[in-house]
Design a binder for these strands. Structure first.
Lengths: 243, 243
DNA sequence: CGTTCCCTTGAGATCCGTCAATATTAGTGG
DNA sequence: CCACTAATATTGACGGATCTCAAGGGAACG
């Protein structure tokens, strides 16, 4: 493996990098200028309206992308975690979303231009980027469906199950618990609810024996019932084995 | 312009095709196997779970992509119209969404594989696809924010303004009315509301002098107020002038 | 050991959904 | 052009889910 020395081997765990760059011509890979960075918890990394165009590959930690509304409310679009990619916009027009760390966050960071121009010389990389974009879209569609057509309890259960699966690279079968640094306020802003209602719903889910979320620990108490209740599917979390 | 003769010149109006293919090597363009097709209103074109992988460029007409839930409810993800692209998934795993015409629909249709392999030989085309994906993502994010953090009236007003802008290629300044074939039920399924509530909200918006939607005609009565009420922005609808 | 988030709980108000009935429009066949 | 039908739109009464306001408790952190 011939990677620039400043890129840690851990980067290979990131699907797009591990699979695509190993095929890409080394000239491209070397020119990416990717650096490893560490942000403290609760740091705004990219602000809405920034002209800046960077791309981030999350190595470890939790984060969120969100938009602020005029009303002062916040809509969280996603909680990217290890393996996720942020900033895959390739757009000149300033983004309306901000990007913030929730825990301490370790990312591989690079200029968007570097990646897009590299992708012009590496069809494999371009394909891989499209595949990542497709996965992100699938996740976003699930999120939209969750907010649009499910009750508060279903929304919370679905999101917590999804986050558990994403923490474990798309597996849920053997998870009965995972650590989750999100606050009830974070959940509310992601799910179109208020924090107070999220609190009540969590209590209800706990009493029903479905799941428990206390002291940063999510416990899956009855996986089958949750899957049933929320119509949960794993398939949308998969990366494409795009030929 | 050297296009396969079976492709109508109208295809050039579609941003991705008009701008990308004219640059792409002609071999790619000729190999796309794109055909023009016409579907009657209310026809399911692609069903959830289809293994089939086609890509559609809408030439004219309205359509929707949606998912059906176990509960029998429906979540509409988007209403693609002229110039939009459907099926840009590049995924093997079957899609969870269906695609349906609302009015009579004219599309340019091709195998997904043909486009992805063409994009491997045309960096410009690949970039253009990423740009289209970015725009779709921006629209989806706005939709999510709309459902998650706005009241019924705001949701309806925002969606109807967006659709007006998309019908007019991203302009709203000079629109005071447009034809909209969506039913109140369609709006409800897109906005996470019931048709009955959409009806009441439309009445309210009409009485407030903001907008009117009757007999398939949307009239923008007070554009500035609507923009104000819904925090509407045009920027997310733009295609990227991606270098 | 105090300050600041975060969580928890209650009471009342509001938005929106459900159920039910009717009116209006669009489509179809005669 | 009319009669019939189905889809769509409209309205009212009622109930439920969620929000708002308010207060207090617990956990984390300097």
């Amino acid at each position: 493996m011939e990677f620039p020395s400043r890129i840690s081997p851990r980067v290979l765990d990131i699907p797009i990098i591990g699979k695509a760059l190993s095929d890409a011509d080394k000239a491209s890979a070397n020119g990416l200028g990717m650096i490893l960075k560490r942000y403290p918890a609760h740091t705004i990394i990219t602000r809405e309206g920034d002209g800046e165009d960077r791309i981030f590959f999350v190595s470890s930690g939790w984060s969120c992308i969100y938009t602020d509304l005029l009303s002062g409310e916040r809509q969280i679009i996603d909680f990217p975690a290890g393996g996720d990619v942020i900033g895959l916009r390739t757009r000149r027009s300033p983004s309306r979303v901000s990007f913030k760390s929730i825990t301490e966050l370790t990312v591989f960071e690079m200029a968007a231009k570097a990646l897009t121009s590299a992708s012009e010389h590496s069809p494999t990389l371009a394909s891989r980027l499209l595949s990542v974009a497709a996965r992100q879209r699938a996740i976003l569609i699930e999120h939209l469906t969750n907010i649009g057509r499910r009750s508060g309890a279903e929304r919370v259960a679905h999101l917590l199950l999804e986050m558990g699966a994403r923490q474990h690279y798309g597996q849920i079968a053997n998870i009965n618990a995972y650590e989750c640094p999100l606050t009830q306020h974070d959940l509310a802003d992601a799910l179109g609810l208020t924090a107070i209602h999220v609190n009540r719903v969590l209590k209800e889910l706990r009493q029903l024996g479905l799941l428990s979320f206390q002291h940063r620990i999510v416990e899956i108490l009855d996986l089958n019932e949750i899957i049933n209740l929320t119509d949960f599917s794993l398939s949308y979390l998969k990366y494409d084995d795009f030929a």
